[in-house]
Design a protein around this nucleic acid. Sequence first.
DNA 1: GGTGTGGTTGAAATCGTTTTCACCACAGGA
DNA 2: TCCTGTGGTGAAAACGATTTCAACCACACC
Lengths: 336, 336
Amino acid sequence: MSKYTITEIAKLCGTSPATVSRVLNNPDIVAAPLREKIENTMREVGYKPNPFASRLSSKSRWGLALFVFDILNPFFAMIVRRISHLAMEQGIPLTVCDTENNEEKERIYLDYLLDNKIGGIIFAEGISMNTIERARQYTETVLIDRHSEEGVVSEVSSDNYNGARQAVEYLLQLNHRRIGFISGPAKWPSAEERFRGYCDALKAYDVSFNQELVSRGDLRFESGINAMEYFLTLSEWPTAIFSANDQMALGALNKAKLLNISVPEDISLIGFDNIPYYTIFNTKLTTVEQNIPELCQCAFNIMMKKIRGDNTDKEEKRIIVPTQLKIGETCRKLIG
Amino acid sequence: MSKYTITEIAKLCGTSPATVSRVLNNPDIVAAPLREKIENTMREVGYKPNPFASRLSSKSRWGLALFVFDILNPFFAMIVRRISHLAMEQGIPLTVCDTENNEEKERIYLDYLLDNKIGGIIFAEGISMNTIERARQYTETVLIDRHSEEGVVSEVSSDNYNGARQAVEYLLQLNHRRIGFISGPAKWPSAEERFRGYCDALKAYDVSFNQELVSRGDLRFESGINAMEYFLTLSEWPTAIFSANDQMALGALNKAKLLNISVPEDISLIGFDNIPYYTIFNTKLTTVEQNIPELCQCAFNIMMKKIRGDNTDKEEKRIIVPTQLKIGETCRKLIG
DNA sequence: GGTGTGGTTGAAATCGTTTTCACCACAGGA
DNA sequence: TCCTGTGGTGAAAACGATTTCAACCACACC
């Protein structure tokens, strides 16, 4: 709770407020001896600049916001946890915006933030492109696991394609050939990529794609249940199922258990995400781990660069973070 | 993005900036016709006061923070969702602090917030009393579902006692007499109250308390599993179980299902919280609903009053929000 | 008709920074 | 010697609100 002002620091050092301000914002242009003297006194008396005065005179933007479409979903809750940790470390206020999958709420939050001259916004998967586009015109933006059309926005995402492909190839190596897929929503690029990974893995093993083995889900638990119900109506069951996320995989797992269908004895199962939260089930799910800390760290770094204006301009517009297959207890090798 | 200043509004209305400011902060003291004229022009041109200028001149604190100890827990995620919604409605920036059940993190967050002259902090259950005490000395505080020693801090909580009591009495009315209890952590007052409710309900029905029917949990899914395992080792099983929260109840439910023990045929089960998230299981849990929206609204209102300084001073230091028993599919009536 | 009185309003200082502009001293070139 | 550029610094004007203080105008009352 610093009670000192820039003027007082100036007086203590026998210099002017202007110079102290320069030390704060542009240290290089003040002569070394004086600069050090000022820096020392600031440290000694525990001076902290008043953020409101700063922002009033420099019309610069400030603060970060994070948009997630469903904070009750542990994947996004995890992102909130990481990003808010990083922001706090840097002493940057973060506003968390849970849009509840509601475009009107996105609009209201965004208006509010723009009015308050927010410095940057990080969008997680699930936010509408309208909102992102509008934000982009007024402030810095970074996407996590969300693709924009033409790489106009910086984005950080998991390697959804290879993660999915690796998972399905793992099943293929275990001699599975009849592999079901529980997909995500059609509009979500990250979900689409997982689908591509699924298809290409099959192709690589000369297994023909079979539409009846695909069940469209919405990433929530229930759609995993529904998917499993659907698969069991088929005259010939799949021997393995790959789900576009853990929640649906667990829905499927739960459904199977209730019907006394054994996983992995009767059906093998792989998820995607590896949310720690989901160790709640006593069967350890085999899944593709997304490196959420890394994802968040990258997104945050890019944002900081943008805000600081370190525009090497050649910067990668798109960063891909590798995934990792985590072997659990839900897959088995077919003898055939 | 309002480009108007208070001075311009004044000019448009043929008055002075001072008066416009008064309309903003203290409308009553400016004569009705002038006030309305100013209000209208502000509306017309879409004027929004510059928050930084405001905060610079009025040395008042500003902004809110919300502490939760585990944002991955849907109960707290729900609180984050509600409070951030309310804050945004009022145009107040909210900083969400997920302390990850770590006292060091609490300290860091708090230091940061106090440095930034935060206007108020809302603490949810699970934050250490040290942190709350320290915060209380420098800023406004409100607790949700967290009791302070002597009512020094305003607090809003669910009617844990009566909610628990009602649940257990419901079981008693269904002729259950051997009722197990899965408790929460010892230090949590809200969990303790649920325990008291359990005990008093038994007493009211002349059922003697039996220590072996109590299993201590930590509110997480796993401890529900453990509790169920424990109960099943008893020579005589309980015919019903009341769990101090939904997560543990679902752990117990899941364990039972895996062991082919039917709920409610073999054992009845009641939870506490009614997190919408948990409709994920296809069996609808009978549970005591906490009115989270109301809880949050109350806490928020109290905070706003404190910030505004409307200290009727006679204000209730403690508000209790009623709970409601939600009948699901996990309880049955014993014939005996 | 003078004197309060209370309700409204405006002028001006203030909050703590940033930033522009002018100034100075000194170095280097003509 | 004079002129010009340059790096370092200070004075002072913003930034956009709040707040104090004084002025003003009825109006009523003695």
